[in-house]
């Protein structure tokens, strides 16, 4: 009989031990067990992308990602992008300046998807940004200012 993995995972750099069933969605664990409500849930269908977080360097939609699959892994949420008392990340600052936030519920997921994109592809084309957002729905902004903020972030890092 194989070992059941210990329910230990690293969230935003902190190692935590959890007492939750393995098929609990990661998004629910983050929000309801750990109080990390920056990760939003909009559909529980894996289709709106508001709950996007980064697990071991890759984005996942946390509403349909069982926490048991994250055991032993590193999870990053929107709360990791800036120190609580520190400045916003460059991407966050560009979101603010370009007017890329409206109601803001999609924003954390957008930020995680785009932060990951800029790590994989530091100088994306506009089409690459649009493609990267194919799983992140925003009902408010029409995406334009989100795309502008991303390209401005890449430009500033050049």
């Amino acid at each position: 009989m194989p070992d059941t993995k210990p329910a230990t995972l690293t969230i935003n750099g902190r190692e935590l031990e959890l007492d939750v069933p393995p098929f609990y969605p990661l998004a629910v664990v983050l929000r309801e067990e750990l109080g990390l409500t920056g990760t939003k849930t909009g559909c529980f269908e894996g289709r709106c992308g508001a709950c996007t977080v980064i697990v071991d360097g890759e984005t996942v939609v946390a509403c349909i990602y069982p926490v048991g699959l994250a055991y032993g892994k590193s999870v990053l949420t929107v709360e990791s992008l800036a120190e609580p008392t520190g400045p916003l990340s460059s991407l966050q600052q560009n979101f603010l300046e370009k007017g890329a936030v409206q109601c803001g519920v999609c924003t954390p997921g957008m930020l995680m998807t785009l932060t990951n994109l800029l790590e994989r592809t530091p100088q994306p084309s506009e089409d690459e940004v649009r493609d990267a957002l194919s799983g992140n729905l925003c009902r408010c902004t029409g995406y334009r200012k989100i795309i502008e903020a991303t390209l401005a972030t890449a430009e500033a890092a050049r």
Binding site: P2, T4, P21, P22, Y24, G68
Partner: peptide, 10 residues
């Protein structure tokens, strides 16, 4: 906590 009861074997 009993909402997602299945076992996950690693």
């Amino acid at each position: 906590k009993d909402a997602y009861v299945p076992e996950l074997i690693h």
